[in-house]
Write a protein that binds this DNA or RNA. Sequence first.
DNA 1: CCCTCCATGTGACTGAGTTACATCAACTAG
DNA 2: CTAGTTGATGTAACTCAGTCACATGGAGGG
Lengths: 192, 192
Amino acid sequence: MARWDPDARGRLLRAAIELFAEQGYEATTTAQIAERAGLTRTTLFRLFSDKREILFQGQGALIAGATEAIHRAPAGAPADEVLTAAVTGLADVHTSEQRETGQLLVPLMASSPELQERAAFKRDAIARAIEHELFERFDDRRLAGVLADIGVRSYYAGYASWIASPDDLPLTPLVHQELAEHTAALRHVFAG
Amino acid sequence: MARWDPDARGRLLRAAIELFAEQGYEATTTAQIAERAGLTRTTLFRLFSDKREILFQGQGALIAGATEAIHRAPAGAPADEVLTAAVTGLADVHTSEQRETGQLLVPLMASSPELQERAAFKRDAIARAIEHELFERFDDRRLAGVLADIGVRSYYAGYASWIASPDDLPLTPLVHQELAEHTAALRHVFAG
DNA sequence: CCCTCCATGTGACTGAGTTACATCAACTAG
DNA sequence: CTAGTTGATGTAACTCAGTCACATGGAGGG
């Protein structure tokens, strides 16, 4: 764990998760996290813009996964098919090893308003990215917005059941299932 | 503006908006805001839990407006009608004097990531409140979630055009119009 | 006129986040 | 093998948000 050991970000993530679990998020100082990772506070803030970002490293990959999946969808594909591609792109970012981390993270988020707020921002960022791509395809701001909301909601619902399930099920079909059930609920209300 | 002058919260709000406009959000210190309002930092933090909350005083009223409107909707009313009641409840919280404040606030929010994050949390809180009420009525988590998203999106879209419009139009019909157009876009995708 | 209540003020403290400058491992060139 | 360069890390001092214990002063009641 000396000065030039690799994966400083990963070490900080593990140290943060441990300490937050032991003491709670607010009671843990950035100095403690840095020390357990074998670093100093300054390096922590060089690698993450603030304390919360340690836990939100994955946001960029999720947005990239969704936007690239939409780009790969065939030209002329109908809106619901492109939306399925988007949520598939989100789900496929996760590996089964991340499930364990997620099981630690979810209760942690629930424990701190500061983290919940950052989580809401993350969700909003993902939704806005999908909305942007859908708008470029279909040139309808309202359609892009509501579909993005449905997609993100389905992704989060699928993720929650992935985390909660005792078995190591694959995430993608869970998300597809949620998307199907959410759209079915809407169809029922707006039928006719 | 002496020690016991009334409406300390309102004075702080006005001072904050002025200073944020003059210097930017991050460059303005809580001491400056308190001083312009004729108070001290300590009092500011007694009235608001943090710097951003000065600008987000209205959140509780919005949530109350939406939830009470849903409660007032007739028993047995269909889901789309209850959703209309919810967004009406949101829109009716605003008075036409608030329009001017909103015109100052919107560009301010765009200027600071910290404020955008808080705004995302506010939007999420409103959506969760509506979702909760709809779930109690219709006992369907997915339906409650997607409808809440659509309602909040329509409210924000209507609010944006209210702020942008040169005339002082009433907000409620703008929000109703947005809700109708959002649901129409969905109907078109999920038709048949 | 005094007493109590409560909003406000004072001053000191913790911890997040920033910055300028120093250090040290690794790599590269000669 | 050595010297210079590069980039990640460390040191130390700073600003400011947010907290807290305690002091003060205006308003209203007896």
